[in-house]
């Protein structure tokens, strides 16, 4: 009797419902790691998250060890890393964004022309290259010829990683503009360059801006390519031809040096906060723009 009761519709509905709850449960579980990570960084890092973090350079292993032996908090911060990240990123932005936008405009204009298709495929190819391989390439093409590690080499690596993202977002946001916008500009007698520079690019500005922000946030926490290009530095450096350090690289150093381990958390917390904030900012701009 029970068998007939469980048969057909009711049994199927139950299965369907169970599956639904499973999907919800797993989706919920997927969200947990993000909060776990943030929680752990806050819990372990808030004590060292102080003024010193922004104003002092990273301590040497010796200084940290002495402080540890005498039971003090480890002195110093990550000023050299912050300055380095800023320098490397700024140069990367200068290298990648104009080039990426120009290429994106080219692709949006030429659509399916053979050269455009080739460039589009190559840009996709670039996007897929693992970051460590990009680091290695830059080592070959920049570090070796310049006979030394440098901030410029790191910027080049990050720029190569940003390029495909900027190209893609430029092309996509230009493609979203109606054709009639360009036609209207030309119908008013505007030249091609005037229409591109004064109408098309300004009209897709928020798209370009969002794309650039996302690209920046993606490469900001990169460690692997910097490992083989900028080497690291104990002091603040503003010279792009000199070895430099970065926040992510300092975290890697702290991780490898037991004396410095307690600095990991505050610096990681800072890095994560900056990256996620840029990320959220980019997404909120994108959302606002879509509604309009």
């Amino acid at each position: 009797m029970k068998k007939t009761k469980l048969s057909a519709p009711r049994y199927r509905l139950m299965k369907s419902r169970i599956f639904f709850y499973l999907v919800c449960t797993f989706s919920l579980l997927t969200m947990i790691p993000l909060f776990l990570i943030i929680g752990e960084l806050i819990r372990k890092g808030y004590k060292q998250f102080n003024f010193d973090l922004f104003t002092k350079v990273a301590p040497t292993s010796m200084e940290a060890m002495l402080a540890r032996i005498s039971g003090d908090a480890i002195p110093g911060g990550i000023l050299n890393g912050l300055a380095g990240t800023l320098l490397i990123l700024a140069v990367a932005i200068v290298l990648a964004i104009p080039l990426g936008i120009a290429t994106g405009v080219y692709l949006a204009e030429k659509k399916e022309k053979p050269l455009a298709r080739l460039v589009r495929n190559l840009s996709d190819l670039l996007q897929g290259i693992p970051s460590i391989v990009i680091g290695v390439i830059v080592y070959i093409w920049v570090v070796k010829p310049m006979a030394g590690y440098s901030a410029l080499a790191g910027s080049t690596a990050l720029a190569i990683m940003m390029l495909p993202m900027v190209i893609r977002s430029t092309e996509e946001s230009l493609k979203m503009l109606p054709d009639s916008l360009k036609e209207a500009g030309l119908a008013l007698g505007g030249s091609y360059s005037a229409v591109v520079l004064r109408i098309l690019l300004p009209s897709s500005f928020s798209g370009l801006f969002t794309g650039a922000l996302l690209a920046i946030s993606r490469v900001m926490g990169e460690t692997a390519p910097l490992l083989v290009t900028v080497l690291g530095a104990a002091t603040v450096n503003w010279d792009i031809t000199q070895p430099t350090t970065a926040v992510s690289l300092l975290i890697w150093e702290f991780y490898n040096d037991p004396n410095l381990a307690s600095l990991i958390w505050s610096s990681s917390l800072l890095l994560l906060l900056i990256v996620l904030c840029i990320n959220l900012l980019a997404k909120s701009i994108a959302k606002k723009w879509k509604i309009q």
Partner: peptide, 11 residues
């Protein structure tokens, strides 16, 4: 879930 993609590899 997308934010998860933003977390740096080293973290």
């Amino acid at each position: 879930v997308d934010l998860l993609a933003g977390v740096p590899s080293i973290v």
